[in-house]
Amino acid sequence: MIPAAFAYDRPTTVDQAVGLLAAHPGAAKVIAGGQSLLPLLKLRLARAERLIDIGRLSELKGVRRTAEGGVSIGALTTYDELGRDPLITTYGLMADVLPQIGDVQVRNRGTIGGAVAHADPASDMPAVLLALEAELVARSIRGVRTIPMRGFLRGPFVTAIEPDEILTEIRIPAPSGAYGSAYRAIEQPASGYAIAGAAVVVGRSGGGSGPLDRCAVALTGVGEMPYRAAAVEAAFLGAAGPAAAAAHATDGVTVGSDIHADRAYRAAVAAVEVRRALEAAIARAG
């Protein structure tokens, strides 16, 4: 399988990259690791007149601690690099999810920014970033803007990134007080994509041994795009136990159905994975 022919640019700075993107409106696609885009181009499910390869932009690689105590992740940081970075794996749900994304070869090439911009409805990382209340940074020749993860996803494979923008950075806020987090998923065995995946962060805003008064729950693979399960969060904060809270996992969501998992099964395993993730996160919060 060979993609349709395209022109190829490999800019050496982000400024060059956004300039190229602006110079070819609607005709260019951005490629990073290519682990999502290349299969689509090969199957000709996607086409591009021009690929702008941002894979060498070293200014977009790496993880650093921010002044506010959070973490800034360059969009081109690979899953493999994230999985070996203690600033990242200190988040329990990141340590859970990173080794199970794709396989070694995919994790060596695939980038966090590429996965989030691709926005596959069953992708793990968008749910993780929703639960972490991440912010995304996008750049174009018009300037830089910050987009909350909540509101970033607009539908399957559709995001708030404008056609002339490049996703440059993912910011994760510092966890508030004592917290615990976890990611649990049941995967479709052949593709590895989540039939249902649940990302949970719970915490105590006051720290110490007070009640868990923070709860963020996000699901992937279940609806038309990853979402925050507000009903689960409300039930948990209203003192429901993990199982009772998890029963609300698909409230208000049109649950997807395919040959691997029909609607009833998918909804049932979504609740199970939310419960498991809640229990693990609570245990880690201590």
């Binding site: 290349l38 090969k42 199957l43 070869q105 060596n108 090439r109 052949a190």
Partner: peptide
Amino acid sequence: CDTSQCGACTVLVDGQAVKSCTMLAVQ
């Protein structure tokens, strides 16, 4: 498979295993 599933095309690129059916030569 030529679809990034089977790994038969795995090579080392700068020491890391990569599926060479899912990497452009220009990359």
